[in-house]
């Protein structure tokens, strides 16, 4: 273990040098490649031990000590947190590219544009063209992304949803307690502040991932339980997502259907009828839901499970007096829209 901690400390030093020291002027292809290998090693260490509290704690402490020592020589240095190590190569890259002393020769290696076929025999193929490839991936995504606008979720949310599932499976598989897993999920949500709508898409994509294994089923179940506790997220999803997507979720997950039904029923019960305008409207909810939108939601649920919805609405209508006149019972009016 000591050796691992020592290596982490050395790599933290390496990152500091790469970012702030004039020593990079002496770097060549070999140095660069070795630096990348060390950074990659730290990524492995991260994934191996990030759930092990004891080792993680020791590593954090080691990184802290190293940072203190480094700051004496390099005042601009920021500490590398253990939680950042999963993208250690990227940190190395950012450090290098922001270091004013970085020699042109190193940049040329990173932005090499030779055909990957030509670099096969290259000893340093992992670093050669690393940035060029990243630029290519990003550019290609930008060029092609507008063509996928017919997809309800979108490629980004779909990939993120899949990664969320992977992360959840890992957390649950490693025997983390539910509380810690929830905490992780909360912190992901916190990171998405201001982007809630996008986060709703990610959750939807995660829940729609094909259930190809017991771990996927367990992860989705965990996510559904979490969602039931997070009224804001659920409400956000039901307001923001396309009803087709909500319908797919309702068809696939009974738990989601239940939560969704409860939510739209709550919305419906908040409706009042304006005799003057002849319409149902909401008084104290923000943002408000129109009768039209509400009936779309019920239509979606009706398509997912016709018998349940009809039975429930009929019962509610009867409890309201079972009149066949519009404007008296929201349930009666919704039912008449559905059975039209």
């Amino acid at each position: 273990m000591e050796a691992v901690l020592k290596n982490l400390a050395s790599t933290a030093e390496l990152l500091a040098v790469a970012s702030h020291s004039a020593a990079v002027e002496q770097w060549d292809e070999r140095t660069l490649s070795r630096a990348f290998h060390w950074a990659q090693y730290c990524e492995h260490v991260f994934f191996r031990f990030h759930n092990n509290q004891a080792i993680r704690g020791a590593a954090e402490k080691q990184l802290q000590l190293t940072a203190q020592r480094l700051r004496a020589a390099l005042p601009d240095h920021h500490q590398v947190a253990f939680s950042d190590l999963f993208r250690c190569r990227h940190l190395l890259l950012i450090g290098l590219l922001n270091n004013p002393k970085l020699p042109g020769s190193i940049m040329k290696i990173l932005f090499d544009t030779k055909n990957p076929v030509d670099t096969k025999d290259n000893e340093y193929q992992d670093v050669t063209g690393f940035c060029s490839r990243l630029v290519q991936y990003k550019s290609a995504c930008k060029v092609l992304r507008p063509l996928t606008d017919q997809s309800l979720v979108g490629a980004d949310a779909e990939v993120q949803g899949m990664m969320l599932m992977t992360r959840l499976s890992a957390l649950l598989g490693q025997g983390s307690d539910a509380c810690r897993t929830e905490h992780s999920l909360d912190s992901v949500l916190q990171g998405c502040e201001g982007q809630e709508e996008h986060f709703c898409l990610v959750i939807a994509a995660a829940l729609l991932t094909p259930e190809d294994s017991p771990t996927t089923i367990a992860s989705q179940d965990f996510l559904l339980n979490w969602l039931q506790k997070k009224h804001n997220v659920l409400q956000g999803m039901c307001s923001a997502l396309h009803t087709t997507l909500l319908g797919n979720l309702a068809k696939k997950h009974v738990k989601f259907r239940g939560a969704y039904t409860d939510l739209v029923k709550r919305w419906a019960s908040d409706m009042e009828y304006s005799v003057n305008d002849g319409v149902w409207f909401q008084t104290h909810r923000s943002p408000t839901v129109s009768f039209q939108k509400l009936s779309e939601h019920f239509q979606t649920l009706f398509e997912a499970c016709p018998a349940d919805v009809e039975q429930e609405l009929t019962a509610l209508k009867i409890s309201d007096g079972n009149f066949d006149i519009s404007g008296l019972s929201i349930w009666g009016d919704l039912l008449s829209v559905l059975t039209k």
Binding site: E43, F46, F47, H50, S83, D84, F86, R87, R89, H90, F130, R133, L134, Y137, K138, A140, C141, K142, L144, R145, L147, T148, A155, D156, E158, V159, Q160, M162, M163, L164, T166, R167, S184, S187, V188, G191, C192, G194, Q195, H198, F199, V202
Partner: peptide, 27 residues
């Protein structure tokens, strides 16, 4: 481009290069 992406990826432990490659493959 996306503000949410880096936060989300930090939470999910996915480095940018891997992320962009995955999105490209998905698209």
């Amino acid at each position: 481009d996306s503000v949410a992406m880096p936060h989300l990826m930090n939470g999910l432990h996915v480095p940018p290069t891997e992320y962009h490659l995955k999105v490209l493959r998905k698209i």
